[in-house]
Amino acid sequence: MKSLLHITNGDNFTSKLQSLHLKGDIITWREMLCEGKTLCAVGSESFWKTRFEFLNKNYKVSKSWFVEKTLKEYRSLCNHKQQDQIVLWFEYDLFCQINMLAVLSWLKTHRRHAEISLVCSGKEDESDKLYGLNELSDEKLLDLYDNRTILSQDDIEFADYVWQLYCSDNPIRLENLIAHNNFQFQYLSEALRAHLKRFPTIKNGLNEMENRILDTAASQKPESRAVLLNQVLANQGYYGFGDTQYNRMISSLKPLFGSFNPVKLTRKGKEVLTNKANYYSQLRDNQLYLGGSLKYNFLYNSTTDRILKL
């Protein structure tokens, strides 16, 4: 009998997977590597130290929570050495795809002889909707599981290579990769395009997500900050971010809002939104990383879809 290990994208889906009663143990990957600085050597002491510092500073994550939730689960993964089949459960969005790359990079180093397969949800019907794993019926999940993609050694090497590029100090290399590669991973190129749009635009110094927050405030006229947050969450394409991440973004843009009840932009906010003013210098933070690159050392040219180094 082959032994199985499932690695999931989060606690909510782990609960759902347990209810399907598939064979094998389940490990939950509790990280959000799409935010903050990342290092190539996944699981190393310096990797976890860097991650804790970011989460503690920006999300007030305590050491005890980090050890209990993230490190304990990672150690459990390290202790699962016997399984010869490992199934990854991830979704189409940037949040999931970056975590998936990190896990595959770790598996390449530490589980060289296991058969690794991937269940990845996204486009599941004729509509334009992209589905998260939790949105699918048990029947659909079992169907995806039965038809999961067995990853070749080349696929795993490629994922590791993309992870190395994500952790490098220059996102232009990722841009070149997207332009010249047919991806074996169905949703990865779109997720990486979304990643590049997180660098500030030349036009007003805000990135795509920050501009979307202002645009939603101006066009939808939400009654409150909570309504603004829900509207942004519902219309985020390939990002897959949670409310804590968007709340942090809204807080960084607070000077551009005259009121949150109802939501109104200041005159400056409207000027930034219409590219009549540039907010780059007010937002610039020399400690803010996207992967291995400093966010404010690069600009995104939305006209040409190219990254420029400052």
Rank of each mutant, 00 (worst) to 15 (best):
L71D: 05
K72M: 11
F90Y: 04
S44P: 00
K60L: 12
E115G: 10
N56K: 14
V67G: 04
L101K: 06
N56I: 09
V103F: 03
K72D: 11
F52S: 00
E68F: 10
K57D: 12
Y92I: 05
K60I: 08
R75T: 14
V42S: 04
E53Y: 00
K69T: 15
W89D: 03
K108H: 14
T70M: 12
F90H: 04
V61M: 15
C40T: 09
V103T: 04
Q85E: 15
C96A: 14
R51W: 02
Y92Q: 02
L107M: 06
V103P: 01
K72C: 11
S46Q: 08
K108N: 11
K57L: 14
K60H: 11
L104Q: 01
E73V: 10
S76Q: 14
C96I: 04
S64A: 12
T70W: 03
L94P: 02
R75H: 15
K81I: 15
Q82W: 04
A41F: 00
L88M: 14
F66K: 03
E73L: 08
R111E: 05
R51E: 09
A114Q: 10
Y59M: 03
K63C: 06
G43K: 05
T109F: 07
F54C: 06
W89A: 01
L107D: 02
K49I: 00
E91M: 05
N58M: 07
V42K: 01
K69H: 13
N99Q: 13
R51M: 05
F47K: 00
V103C: 09
S76P: 01
H113Q: 14
I98L: 15
K57H: 11
V67P: 01
A114R: 04
N99S: 10
K81D: 06
T109R: 12
Q97I: 09
R112I: 08
E68H: 11
L94W: 03
H113N: 14
E45Y: 00
T109P: 02
T109Q: 15
Q85T: 11
F95E: 08
E73D: 13
D84G: 05
K72A: 14
E73Y: 08
S44N: 00
W89T: 01
F66S: 02
H110F: 15
L94G: 05
L55V: 07
L77Q: 05
W65S: 03
R111T: 08
R51Y: 04
V61H: 02
V103A: 04
N99G: 07
S64N: 11
E115L: 15
W89H: 03
F95V: 11
